[in-house]
Simulated assay, not measured.
Amino acid sequence: MSLPSCLTRVSGVLPRGTEGFWKSVAHYVPRDPVDMRILNPYFIQEAAFQFIGLPLNNGLMGKGNIPTLGTVAITMALHNCDEVAVAGFGYDMLTPHAPLHYYETVKMSAIKESWTHNISKEKEFLRKLVRAKVISDLTKGI
């Protein structure tokens, strides 16, 4: 059953602006359970509140206190790896029409409108890690 039909049944109305957004629920994941890993929420909390210093917002996530997945990945790598090197980090706000990520068409300017991420605080955190030689920045974007 797809999500739109569930929503239509519950509310009687399909939400506007969902064209291309809602996807059918996956019935099969092309991996065996032994190949699956679940990210411990601790890494998200540590990246957000201890490393970057984002606001707690009474324990609620959102409004500028959700770290990007890249920063969460770096946090997790710092716990598990002897050396951490990153590539492609460092949102270039001087090039607003550049792609935000290599795998999509969203532009760099979109990150300015993000209500969930605090990019300036994240960049400050990543720069500290590079300066302290805790991580290496292979592409010099940070």
Rank of each mutant, 00 (worst) to 15 (best):
A132C: 06
K121E: 15
D32V: 06
D137N: 01
R127H: 11
E113W: 02
G17P: 13
W115H: 13
Y103P: 01
E113P: 04
A26D: 13
T105F: 05
G12A: 03
C6Q: 14
G59R: 03
F43R: 06
T68S: 15
T18N: 08
M61N: 06
K63F: 07
P30A: 00
Y42F: 13
N65K: 04
K23R: 14
T95R: 15
P55V: 05
E113S: 08
K112G: 12
D137C: 03
M61G: 10
V86Q: 03
P99H: 01
F21C: 13
F21L: 14
F43Y: 15
W115R: 12
G59L: 04
T139W: 05
T116I: 12
N57E: 01
V25H: 07
A77K: 00
L126N: 01
L3A: 08
N80G: 04
L7M: 13
I66F: 07
E19S: 12
M36P: 01
E124N: 09
S2R: 12
S114D: 12
L7C: 10
P99T: 07
S109V: 06
A132L: 11
T116P: 07
L7P: 00
N58H: 14
D35S: 07
L138R: 00
V86A: 00
V84G: 00
P55N: 05
M93Q: 11
L78N: 00
L94C: 07
S5Y: 08
V86F: 01
G70Q: 03
F51I: 05
M36I: 15
V86L: 01
T8M: 10
K133W: 07
S136W: 02
L94A: 11
F21D: 09
F43E: 08
K140N: 08
W22V: 09
Y103W: 10
I52K: 04
N80I: 01
E19H: 10
A98R: 04
G17L: 07
P4C: 07
G88H: 00
D35Y: 09
S136K: 13
T8R: 12
V29S: 06
I66Y: 05
K123Y: 08
A110G: 00
T18C: 14
G17D: 12
G17W: 02
L39R: 05
G17H: 14
S24H: 10
I74Y: 02
K23H: 13
K128T: 04
M108G: 00
D92Y: 05
R16G: 12
M1Q: 04
P33M: 02
G59W: 05
V29M: 10
S11Y: 15
G53E: 03
P33L: 03
L78V: 03
V134H: 02
V106I: 12
R37V: 15
S136L: 08
H117G: 10
S120Y: 10
Y103F: 15
T116N: 15
A26H: 11
A87Y: 02
F89E: 00
A26T: 08
I119T: 02
H27L: 12
L94P: 06
M76E: 12
